[in-house]
Nucleic acid binder design. Structure first.
Length: 262
DNA sequence: ATGGTAGCTGGGCTA
């Protein structure tokens, strides 16, 4: 079994210990990280290498930043989402990962723009970014590989993915244009792994730090793992691990995990 | 209606 996880850690320096602790207990083969909030050189690579992970890192000063940790060797990497050479925000990293027996998967760590306030140029940037993701995902899917696009999409796909949908209609995470942009990506032939597994209970992946959102379970489901048909054919399970959100000094997001039959 | 929290950075932005 191959497990691939995603976790927006909201500063890897603040979350280094929590991240190491979770890696030790959950032991995913691949972990896609978002919101590193540090430059590439500042990434605590040694901590993760000591736990047996290879690291592909795209950092940025102050904001954003994405990485892929893998127990298996990392080959070619892509460190920018194609479609706008003027976009310098560190929101996309992709890696080819070699598995035993000559097999491989392609995984991307995705940190889509938030887009608030809406409407504003930030929403325009979000929608344009998702449009670029759609075009690039179309090209990736043509390879017909096991492809995993994991990350913080900053999209609430359905009303039941937010504690109070009526209060979120104008928010960039739930506005119709945002959900449509996400659906267009799915419609290329990608599958939301958590939805495919139809697991019960809370599906939230994010709880705001403010106003006791965690205690009240006022959450959102905005972190998603999308699978190509070849990956979906190997899907054995998907789950959201709420535990790290309950730890001291938590990220506001918690990990999502998929198991692929390899 | 406002502010409530967290992180980076050293005031305001981002979320």
């Amino acid at each position: 079994m191959l497990t691939v996880a995603t976790w927006n850690v909201n500063s890897i320096k603040q979350r280094e210990a929590a991240c190491a602790a979770w890696l030790k207990q959950a032991a995913p083969d691949v972990l896609c990280l978002q919101e590193l909030k540090c430059q590439t050189e500042g990434f605590p690579r040694g901590t993760f290498e000591d736990l047996g992970y290879n690291c592909a890192v795209l950092g940025q000063k102050s904001f954003n930043g994405v990485a892929i940790l893998s127990k298996y060797p990392i080959g070619e990497t892509v460190t920018a989402l194609p479609g706008d050479s003027g976009d310098d925000q560190a929101r996309y990293i992709e890696a080819e990962i070699s598995l035993p027996g000559g097999k491989a998967i392609r995984a991307a760590s995705i940190y889509a723009p938030n887009g608030n306030p809406a409407p504003s140029p930030k929403l325009d940037y979000k929608l344009a970014w998702l449009g670029r993701l759609e075009e690039y995902a179309r090209a990736l899917l043509a390879y017909e590989e096991v492809l995993v696009l994991a990350g913080d999409y900053n999209i609430i796909p359905r009303p039941q993915d937010v504690y109070n949908p009526a209060g979120w209609t104008e928010d960039a995470l739930f506005r119709l244009e945002s959900r449509q942009a996400f659906r267009r990506v799915l419609h290329l032939g990608l599958t939301d792994a958590v939805m495919a597994c139809d697991s019960r209970g809370s599906q939230y992946t994010f709880w705001d730090y403010q106003a006791g959102a965690w205690q009240k379970d006022f959450g959102l489901r905005i972190d998603h793992i999308l699978l190509s048909p070849q990956a979906l054919g190997r899907l054995a399970g998907a789950s959201i691990d709420r535990k790290p959100r309950s730890w001291d000094k938590p990220s506001d997001h918690t990990p999502v995990v998929v198991s692929l039959d390899f």
